[in-house]
Design a protein around this nucleic acid. Structure first.
Lengths: 110, 110
DNA sequence: TTAGTATATAAGCATTAACTTATATAAAAG
DNA sequence: CTTTTATATAAGTTAATGCTTATATACTAA
């Protein structure tokens, strides 16, 4: 697979409002699956499937802690992705766009 | 429509190998539809449909000259797109990836 | 006007993609 | 061990996408 396919494949994943929102939030810190379920108002399997796609491409990585799974960005070697994410609104503005306030969501996942 | 939708919508268009290749080539100069038909080896309507999508989004603009239509980039106000295009191989490398050589294609469209 | 060429649009088909519900796995609590 | 909670996977449905062929439009040339 050449560079054009690689970039196009990555951008196809970013070209979804939900996944792009997740990646925007992940710039600032890790988030657990349950938080995303709450923020994006889609089913838990839907969140899990989005994250799997990003994980398979190496754009995010997971970290299991007890029964929770936290996801974090992994784009140090992907400038075409980092460049896009840099153009997104910050966490507070994203949460506002999504109709959520800072600090909402599950408080249990440490 | 908010900023997240806008960026996601644009990236959805870039997440296609053919359109991304077109935009990569358009960084250097204008190209006419007939050249793209030759380079990407898809039908003329397929090329036309890709370009229409990019045009509707304001990512490219057209310039009619005689019976030919030339397309050019229009991303001065779209940093999230320009940032991605900057990460692509240059014209010669793109043409090579696509199995084409510089200077091939229709010579008529001035 | 008629014929030829370049591009655009329309219609139809095959594939992909995103969601849902149902179920499986894994960890924690009792 | 059994129940509860968090996440993942499977299966199925619906919508969107990219291609093709056929046709329409626009310009050029005879």
């Amino acid at each position: 697979m050449n560079r054009l396919d690689e970039v196009a494949g990555d951008l196809k994943l970013l070209g979804d409002k939900t996944r792009l929102g997740m990646l925007g939030l992940l710039r600032e810190r890790e988030w657990c699956v349950c938080e995303f379920v709450d923020i994006f108002e889609i089913s838990q399997p839907a969140v899990s499937q989005h994250l799997r796609k990003l994980r398979v491409k190496g754009i995010v990585k997971e970290s299991k802690r007890g029964q929770w799974v936290h996801y974090s960005l992994d784009v140090a070697d992907k400038p075409h992705i980092a460049a896009v994410l840099a153009q997104l609104p910050d966490t507070a503005a994203l949460l506002d766009l999504l109709g959520k306030k800072q600090g909402e969501g599950c408080a249990e996942c440490d």
